[in-house]
Design a protein around this nucleic acid. Sequence first.
DNA 1: CGGATGGGGAGAGCAGTGCTCTCGCTTGAG
DNA 2: CTCAAGCGAGAGCACTGCTCTCCCCATCCG
Lengths: 239, 239
Amino acid sequence: MYGTLTCMSTVRGARERARLEVTAAIKDEARRRLAAEGAAKLSLRAVARELGMVSSALYRYFPSRDELLTALIIDAYDSVGVAAETADAVSLAAGAAPRPRWIAVCGAVRAWALAHPHEYALIYGSPVPGYSAPADTIGPASRVANVLIGILRSAHEGRGLSLPPLPAALRSEADRMTADFALGLPPEVTAALVAAWAQLVGLISFELFGQFNRVVEERDAFFAHAVGRLAHEVGLPAV
Amino acid sequence: MYGTLTCMSTVRGARERARLEVTAAIKDEARRRLAAEGAAKLSLRAVARELGMVSSALYRYFPSRDELLTALIIDAYDSVGVAAETADAVSLAAGAAPRPRWIAVCGAVRAWALAHPHEYALIYGSPVPGYSAPADTIGPASRVANVLIGILRSAHEGRGLSLPPLPAALRSEADRMTADFALGLPPEVTAALVAAWAQLVGLISFELFGQFNRVVEERDAFFAHAVGRLAHEVGLPAV
DNA sequence: CGGATGGGGAGAGCAGTGCTCTCGCTTGAG
DNA sequence: CTCAAGCGAGAGCACTGCTCTCCCCATCCG
């Protein structure tokens, strides 16, 4: 079985190894140019030039510019995902309660966004390729949300979460959402969590995209306060 | 005085008249192509071609593609601004209380976004031109926020708004924000409003940019519920 | 061991882009 | 009536994404 299937984890030969290395080099250089000038100005030819290749050679690795961008999008989702996951793991290892864990994860997402503004814009700004995200992105895209779900799950298992009941129009929808990706949470919490996740991204986007420019000055304090209210909104008691 | 200064409101001659008409025609066609294919694919040459001009002629009206986009951004801010303003005016004329007014305005912003997705992406998605928005946009950009401020102001003057006190780190900042653009509101309300406005845009962006795709199905009910919670968050009591 | 195979780089080329410059025509102001 | 200013047309430059062809050489099979 190991011999017949192409082994996925170990590199098979020099050929595959080279291909993986070149692919990684292309993505690295693309990420560098993305950070420097933004997605709109990311040019395949410039990436190839910087790598000492000719532009057509690059099409052996990515069938189009949009596919390269999609690869960067997936990497960005994974990057912010591990940022959130490690923040939560650190917080958990320090024995933190759900509320400080929630605040730590939100802060980690914001810190990642501030450190990688163009990658953040790639995944949470306007969708640049076609119009709807490719299917490959839905897995990595939910990593951060899963961290938040985990926090609320352990909070619920711990001392219980209680929120006002849902309006009738939303009850079955909240049950479906809970069954789909948040098993174990009360449906009101699931609904509140999804909204809170969108709202968190709204807060970060406003800061990053300049909407807070002549409005909010003390960004850290403002964000901390807003995230605390968000925690309250999903049922994490305010101490 | 009327003779020496160039009169601004009335059209002076055929020359100016033609210039205004052509400028409007360019923006209209650009908006059409923006709606059809998005900002990334908006091409000056295509706009000129559709208008029966040659591309260089277009530079008599807009010094660059980015300036054209900036003009579209300003128009989009104004467009969503009047949508919010008329929704509030209608609501107010029907004798609605602050909370239903808040809900009506939020719904109007969402409806505008769903009707003009690419224009929405232009103003609340990733900033497409340089990196920070030009100064001409800060006025139109605040129209929607001003409507929300107006609602909260009348709610406060009516029966009063009360929110939990601010943390010390945010108190002076909230005072400054209040003095800058929300005179008359309690500082806690100002801070909550700014956050709520960003969060509202987060909710709409997630829906519009596909982040809710395999997550939220009943979009209307979900949004209505979230906006109700947002109203509660800024101090508008739940009935 | 040797020849077929196919992966991958190089180069030319096509259609399209933003933007500049120059050349005329037209029109409105003095 | 004259003349400068406004404006459209066209050519052209540097760049883009993408395709196609050519050719080399590492790999695999007999």
